[in-house]
Amino acid sequence: MSSRTIESRPKALAVWLVIAGVIGWGAAFALTVEKFHALQNPGSGPASCDFSIIVQCTANLDSWQGSVFGFPNPILGLTGWVAPIVVGMAVLSGARFARWFWLAFAAGITFAFGFVLWLISQSIFFLGTLCPWCMVTWLVTIPTFYAVWVYLLRAGVISDAARVRAVGSKLAAWVPLMAIVTYAVVLLLAQLRLDAIPQLLDVIF
């Protein structure tokens, strides 16, 4: 079973993977530029993504959490977001992947999701900031995680059992709601801890 090819072509998922990958890569690129600018021009003042004490990226980039693996976190995004783009484009081009490939891909997405949840907790509860470009990354990582795992259930990647696949099919329509609920929980925590909503509205409007 581990080597069999999954026959279904998840076109909707593929389109989302490309869109999410491009957005996520763009956010990572913007953060990388900000980090390089800060390194080249120390003491040059607030970064372009610093809007207030709460909504800013400098505190995140300068913290140890911003380089938890020994290098700036945005570098992970620059490399990691290439995978969804490539997988999405490959599926749209007609490629079909083996079960082990989908499981490996899902493992990477799961790592990204877990890492994002950890970064969210660090931002809200320890750094006391909401990094704009980081939030863009959160915005696309969360639904990508749900969409990929629901596809794995629906396509029989996790199990060939009809009951498991039926659960995946039923959950597919709920992916947007699952993402929205997750966003709402994050926003609620940020509001309770940082009074973030007025700050975010000031930035948006």
Rank of each mutant, 00 (worst) to 15 (best):
M1P: 12
S8P: 00
S8T: 15
K11G: 00
A14D: 09
V15S: 02
W16Q: 02
V18A: 05
V18E: 07
I19H: 02
G21R: 00
V22E: 02
V22A: 12
G24C: 08
W25Y: 14
A27F: 04
F29G: 02
F29I: 12
L31W: 00
L31H: 03
T32M: 08
V33K: 05
K35L: 09
L39I: 08
N41R: 09
S44Y: 04
P46H: 09
S48K: 07
I54M: 10
I54C: 03
Q56N: 14
Q56L: 04
C57D: 08
C57S: 14
T58W: 05
N60V: 10
N60Y: 15
G66L: 01
G66C: 07
V68D: 11
G70C: 08
P74S: 10
G77S: 03
L78C: 08
M89C: 15
M89N: 05
A90F: 03
A95Y: 11
R96K: 15
A98H: 10
W102E: 03
L103H: 06
L103I: 15
L103V: 13
F105Q: 02
A106Y: 04
G108Q: 05
A112D: 09
F115R: 01
L119W: 05
Q122M: 14
S123T: 03
I124P: 00
L127R: 01
G128L: 09
C131N: 03
M135T: 12
M135A: 11
M135L: 14
W138L: 10
L139F: 15
I142K: 00
P143K: 03
Y146I: 01
L152K: 00
L153Y: 12
A155V: 06
D160G: 09
A162H: 10
R165D: 04
A173Q: 08
W174E: 05
W174Q: 11
P176Q: 07
P176T: 09
M178D: 03
I180C: 10
T182E: 11
Y183N: 04
A184F: 12
L188E: 07
L189R: 03
Q191Y: 05
Q191W: 03
R193M: 09
D195L: 08
D195V: 07
A196V: 02
A196S: 13
I197W: 09
P198N: 07
D202R: 14
V203A: 13
